[in-house]
Amino acid sequence: MNNYSTFGTALHRLAILCYVVFALFPLFWLLKVSVTPNDLLYSEGVRMWPSRMSFEHFRFVLAHSAFPVFFRNSLIVAGATAVIVTLLASLSGYALSRFTFRGKYWLVALMLLTQMFPLVMLVAPIFKMLSPLGLTNSLTGLVVVYTAFNIPFATFLMQSFFDGIPKELEEAAKIDGATQFMAFRQIVLPLTLPGIAATLGFVFTAAWSELLFALMLISGNSAATFPVGLLTFVSKFSVDFGQMMAAGVLALIPACLFFLFIQRYLVQGLTAGAVKG
């Protein structure tokens, strides 16, 4: 290894390090504020870590706020949305990847079109549509809306994963005696697990952190999701940063767990060895 490449590697690593620090710093700050006792929050100035740690905010959030309800609501909404969207997107993505059918071009164009509108524009019409159906102020309503908004992108995502699976595998399965659906279920689907994991993760996080519709369609605490709930810390207690951050840290847990669970599929190159090359 010559000097230049050593230098290049060092530079490369340094750049990555800078990026990681930059990306993770807000999370660190979140954690830091959440364990800083209220009396030290403003009195100690800017420090990297408080001189005394306390979990009082966590205790309060869990025991005396509506946070557990928000948390449960978010879990239901994000989980249901992720599962439904991924299921539908796998089917539609597969169809887009493998079949030619009339109107395919326009269908894709239409799906792209839906992605171009700022969501704010749609709040009023959606509210108007959902309210006679009794779907405002309900978790089901949120799931319906999130599903509708996430399906186009998730479909394209799944389509690209299906595109990556050689068509010949299915053809081989069909010749081996499988029906189209069996080939899909037994050959294609297991190989798309990384894609399914990615889609699940993407939709889950999107639904988990969605604020606009949750705010507009839900009033009152019983059906509020966690991002809406976070705002209650702003109004009720002036801004209680300590509790808000503690709630934020807790809200990170499911997302972290989720990605921990799916990362095995995300990194795995399952198709390796399918075809030569």
Binding site: P166, L169, E171, K174, I175, A178, T179, I187, V275
Partner: peptide, 20 residues
Amino acid sequence: RAPKDRDIAMVFQSYALYPH
């Protein structure tokens, strides 16, 4: 007839082995 009902076997250039 669908491929499955023709009772033939095919060897592909890319082999098309099921990777999983």
